[in-house]
Computed example of a mutant assay.
Amino acid sequence: MANAKIGEALRLLGLDPAAVRVYLALLELAPAPLSGIEAASGLNGAELAEAYGTLVAAGLASAAEAGADMVAPVPPAAGLEILARHRAAEIEESRITVGGAFESFRRQRLAAYNDDLVEVVTGEAIGPRMRHAWASAREQIRQFESPPYFLLSEATDDALATLARGVTQRVVYSRESLEYPGRLKDAIEPCIKAGEQARVLPSVPVKLVIIDEAYALVSLSIKEADVHNTMLVVQPCGLLSALIALFEQSWRNALPFHGRTTRPGGLPPADRRLLWLLAGGASDDVIARELGISRRTLFRRLQVLMARLGAANRFQMALQAQRAGWL
């Protein structure tokens, strides 16, 4: 085995360079007088004595007998085992030291950083923060929308202004959104007409607005939002990634609320609204209220639409309306 390789192995076991040089000389010359090892290793008397003492202590060389100058290496099994254990202990101590140092760093430095990943916004600060969110969007906004609503009179105007800037806006509405008095006419339909992509689910898991890939606004609870008036601002982290994934899965499962609105031959706007509301799962009472008609008039219009589409029931009417381009 090349001396360089042996020397590197001994250094990895923790021997200093002087001891390695002496051991290599022993392998080549011993048994030999210590003075001969001195010449081969290039060490002087004091350095040689110290290096050879290291080898003896490590169990790799025999101790020189009193009055004798002959030295030689000894079978290294026991010595190497001791060196290996000692080296392993040093590595473990180093691992613990470095790990402890990082833990201290994490507590002192990263803790402050992690505290900024989720910010709690309450009360009157919510309105300005939400307006800033819409204004800061550059590419897209993803939203879960459901009552109860914060009292933000400018919310619809902010959404329309964002759409006008070319920002994509995808919203999953809960059925309650469509049934909330005035919400469909005053907020939902204007945004859809302005280019918003809307879908509907029976319910949404949380009130949520995701601004680009930058951050999210989250109400603590749909049921408690009107009581606590509290919102979380979630910065980029694993939680934000989970919220984005939740939205995308819900979007895939949701029913499109609004598609093409024209058909050869035309369809009255009131009938289009009726079909949109039906597709969104609104109840008859809600549809009648939003259209400003009685339940009897509503049923009559449904019968006319089913007759035009050749449908025997509402389910068939929805399918035929989609095929005809009315939904």
Rank of each mutant, 00 (worst) to 15 (best):
Q235H: 11
E50P: 02
P236Q: 08
A125N: 13
S153T: 10
R272C: 06
L55G: 00
I126A: 02
L278S: 06
L201N: 00
L275P: 00
P202A: 13
E103V: 09
E189H: 13
A78E: 14
V120N: 04
V171L: 08
I37S: 06
A164M: 09
W276K: 00
E179N: 08
R95M: 12
A194I: 06
H86G: 10
A101R: 10
I244Q: 13
A51Y: 01
D158V: 06
V233K: 02
G7M: 01
M130V: 15
R21A: 09
P268R: 15
S177T: 10
S153N: 11
F257A: 12
A312I: 04
D115N: 13
G238C: 12
Q197C: 09
S146T: 11
E196I: 01
S35V: 14
A61K: 02
N229S: 09
L152N: 05
C191Y: 04
V206H: 03
W251V: 03
L255C: 11
A318D: 09
V204T: 05
V74Y: 05
A318R: 14
V71P: 01
A311M: 05
A88C: 12
F299G: 09
W276A: 04
A19M: 05
R263G: 10
G100V: 08
G266E: 15
A112V: 12
L319H: 09
R183K: 15
I126H: 04
V74E: 07
W134M: 12
L277A: 04
L12E: 14
G265V: 05
